[in-house]
Design a protein around this nucleic acid. Structure first.
Length: 422
RNA sequence: GGAGAGGUGGCCGAGUUGGCUUAAGGCGGUGGUUUGCUAAACCACUGUACGGUCAAAAGCCGUACCCUGGGUUCGAAUCCCAGCCUCUCCGCCA
């Protein structure tokens, strides 16, 4: 959520940022309603001041046994006017709120301005594309041959877009989760959390999934709950409506959760194999930090995610997203893309974003810069560290051998208990 | 799911026959006086949001906030309705 006062005082800056984010709604109506809102507050507050004073007068007269009916009758009309003003103000504020909910965050000045992914910029690469003296197989073929992936089984129990790992595949999943959590908690300073996978509407609003992405979310209507699309939602909302003491920041938390996405409108897009699915596992890293350090924190958060890929020995590249390709709530996003030679594509395994105070404002999360200082909004960041299925794809396809077996990355061997999937 | 109890400031805790309560009192915290230093004692201050004033900040003025949202009333922490949460007991259950 953008600050109403900021919009009022910097309308042109806001317009420029929104247009870079492909927003078509604009802020004109918000500015008009805000004007009206302030008029209403001014008039109502003046009348309330009068009413409060007269109320004390009524109490005094009654106590002295005198008659107060004249001023009571007079105050009746004042009160009626106040409730009319308050009613209109509530309506105006509700309308402003509703419009504000749909306004995306503004891009940071270092973000390339472009309408879509064609404007993304490659920042760096790591490792080299592995070379094969045979044609590398796609992961679904490897997975089926090795008996670690049962897509027909998944389709039978749930439908298209679901995964069932079996045998070593299932264990690989668990090994990756443990490896990633251990890395982030032991080497990068994150505190491990095991949160609920179902969250309420306020949480989904807080991190910015709602209202814009509602149709992409699985919902349990009867209970007013949503299946989380990412651990970002419970992890960040853990601090919703808090005023954190000065010494509490920075907060680094991580969690493994499954993630549920309807992928509405994505039918037929990259659907072969396990690249785009309705449920997948992910280890997420989240930071809540002081505003002045958030862009340094973003760089180190990206490095924390990259460390996973590097430890796994996977070739990848880092891309800075263009303004029009970023998510609703983000001010700056880096994507990490792992190479998948079997499908000959770079796959997004991590998306690392700084949301600045956009989420904090939506969820009323604040901190005190100094022990006695007034509260401010901290900056929130998160990144995947990493998304599992695509990491599995990269491992299977990058580590495959001519025999159709898959070597296990060194670092996973102790977790998995085998050096090769055969 | 059923029955009951309860939700008041950073914390504890009064106030619920509506009006000198602009939320008592205490604890904690901050500043000060005293002091060689510390402690004690004493004094003062104490939250959040919005609006106004100001170039801006501070300050000042005002309004709102006693779980949330409505309502009754000239006036609501206090009365009414709905919801959320916590605790206790029962039922169900991995």
């Amino acid at each position: 959520m953008l600050d109403l006062k900021f919009i009022r005082e910097n309308p042109d800056k806001v317009r420029a940022g929104l247009s870079a984010k492909n927003d078509r709604r604009g802020i004109d109506e918000i500015l008009r309603l805000d004007e009206r809102r302030r008029e209403l507050i001014k008039e109502a507050d003046a009348l309330k001041e009068r009413r409060n004073k007269v109320s004390m007068e009524v109490a005094r007269l009654k106590k002295e046994g005198k008659d107060a009916s004249t001023i009571i009758a007079e105050m009746k009309t004042v009160s009626d006017r106040i409730s009319a003003l308050d009613k209109e103000r509530r309506a105006v504020e509700e309308k402003i709120e509703e419009l504000l909910r749909w306004i995306p965050n503004l891009p940071h000045s270092s973000v390339p301005v472009a309408p879509d992914e064609a404007g993304n910029v490659e920042v760096r690469g790591w490792g080299k594309k592995p070379e094969f003296n045979f044609t590398p197989a796609p992961h679904w073929e490897l997975g089926e041959k090795l008996g670690i992936l049962d897509l027909p089984g998944a389709a039978k129990i749930s439908g298209a877009g679901f995964i069932t790992f079996t045998g070593w595949g299932a264990k690989l999943e668990r090994a990756l989760i443990n490896f990633m959590l251990d890395l982030h908690t032991q080497k990068h300073g994150y505190r491990e959390v095991s949160p609920p996978f179902l969250v309420n509407r306020a949480s989904m609003f807080g991190t910015g999934q709602l209202p814009k992405m509602e149709e992409d979310m699985y919902a349990l209507k009867e209970d007013g709950l949503f299946l989380i699309p990412t651990a970002e939602v419970p992890l960040t909302n853990l601090f919703r409506e808090e005023i954190l003491p000065a010494d509490r920041l920075p907060i680094y938390v991580t969690a493994y959760t499954p993630c549920f996405r309807r992928e509405a409108g994505a039918a037929g897009k990259d659907t072969r194999g396990i690249n785009r699915v309705h449920q997948f596992d992910k280890v997420e890293i989240v930071k809540i930090v002081r505003p002045e350090s958030s862009y340094d924190e973003l760089e180190s958060l990206v490095q924390n995610a990259e460390a996973v890929l590097q430890a796994l020995g996977l070739h990848y590249r880092v891309r800075l997203l263009a303004s029009g390709d970023m998510s609703f709530a983000s001010a700056k996003t880096y994507d990490l893309e792992a190479w998948a030679p079997g499908v000959e594509k770079y796959l997004e395994v991590s998306s690392c974003s700084n949301f600045e105070d956009f989420q904090a404002r939506r969820m009323d999360l604040r901190f005190r810069p100094l022990p006695e200082a007034r509260p401010e909004y901290p900056h929130t960041l998160n990144g995947s560290g990493l998304a599992l299925p695509r990491t599995v794809i990269a491992i299977l396809e990058q580590y495959q051998t001519e025999k159709g077996t898959v070597k296990v990355p060194e670092v996973l061997v102790p977790y998995l208990g085998t050096k090769e999937l055969a």
